[in-house]
């Protein structure tokens, strides 16, 4: 009996130890460097570059922050990294050519877009088992999970569609035609709206999840703008859009979609991560192999950080 109690306490302790204290580090995937650059959140200096595998693109954390996942397109796998010890813990097979993914906030499952196969595949990262695969349009790319865990949005670039997968059934409940070559999606905090960027039409669309209709669309009036990542500020008043080969970040009024400001950054900027506590936005500038740090109060670049070759994704451990 005594032994049982000790065991129980041990389990409780172990469960608690599992929720990792945030390190406030910034993790950047380097598509051609085959590595992850780790940036210290205080000094903004690079602590380490971790070799991770072939063609790392999207990156994201488990809901408890204990694991960092990295999609390895040329290994058809997900690498799992310990964000504290910075060791690569394991890899699991994740379907053909995984590019982007979202971590479900409740189950912790990874919803992965497999670009070549035209599939969204769902994996349990703990066991590495495939839960289900869902046929979507051609060249699926951006994936986003709603904060309430009810929806997962997937964009298919060559079919110009935004698919809404609804849980717990894992069924597509809505298919919405959006701008040309949709690349990324972001939900608002109450999971009622989705913002979508489209690369070729150079616009941002807002979709009302109740009706499944595009309620607003705004064009970034810059011919070179190839919008990719999109993030919403914590107060939900501002959208930040990575402008790709326009080499700038577009700051939009989230309500009107008007461009309030553009912030010049490095070449071919794609990845974005926002740190509301520190009022900072991090961008990956692929061709310049650097990360730009933007002060979101002033909307100005305060620092650029050299990272590995062709940075793609960025995520903050907080």
């Amino acid at each position: 009996m005594k032994l049982k109690i000790v065991f129980f306490i041990f389990i409780l302790y172990a469960a608690q130890a599992n929720a990792t204290e945030p390190t406030h580090r910034i993790f950047v995937s380097n598509e051609k460097g085959n590595s992850i650059s780790v940036i210290d959140g205080k000094t903004l200096g690079v602590i380490k570059e971790i070799p991770v595998g072939k063609r790392p693109r999207d990156i994201g954390f488990s809901p408890d922050g204990s694991e960092l996942y990295v999609a390895l397109g040329d290994e058809d796998a997900i690498a799992v990294v310990n964000p504290v010890s910075l060791e690569v813990l394991r890899k699991f097979k994740a379907g053909s050519d995984p590019e982007a993914f979202a971590v479900h906030p409740k189950s912790g499952y990874l919803f992965i877009s497999n670009e070549d196969a035209g599939l969204a595949t769902i994996f349990d990262p703990v066991t590495g088992n495939k839960i289900i695969e869902i046929q979507v349009g051609l060249e699926p790319e951006g994936v986003a999970a709603s904060p309430d865990g009810r929806y997962v949005a997937v964009t298919s670039e060559s079919s110009n569609l935004l698919h809404i997968i609804e849980l717990p059934d894992y069924k597509i409940s809505m298919n919405i035609l959006v701008g040309s070559r949709p690349r990324d999606a972001a939900f608002n905090s109450d999971s009622s709206l989705i913002y979508v960027t489209s690369e070729v039409s150079g616009d941002v669309g807002v979709i009302d999840l109740k009706t499944g209709k595009v309620i607003k669309s705004g064009k970034l009036e810059d011919k070179k703008a190839k919008p990719k990542d999109i993030v919403l500020s914590k107060d939900e008043k501002t959208l930040y859009v990575a402008g790709g080969r326009a080499n700038k970040i577009f700051v939009l009024d989230a309500e009107t979609l008007e461009v309030k400001k553009t912030i010049p950054v490095g070449k071919r900027t794609w990845g974005l991560a926002i740190d509301p506590a520190e009022n900072r936005l991090f961008t990956t500038d692929g061709v310049d192999s650097q990360v730009s740090v933007i002060d979101t109060n002033r909307n100005e670049v305060i620092k650029t950080i050299k990272v590995g070759s062709f940075p793609w994704g960025v995520a903050i451990h907080d």
């Binding site: 979507v136 349009g137 051609l138 060559s158 079919s159 110009n160 569609l161 698919h163 597509i172 298919n175």
Partner: peptide, 10 residues
């Protein structure tokens, strides 16, 4: 073919 792939969702 690609149009019909898109069309099945719509």
């Amino acid at each position: 073919d690609e149009a019909n792939h898109q069309g099945q969702f719509l």
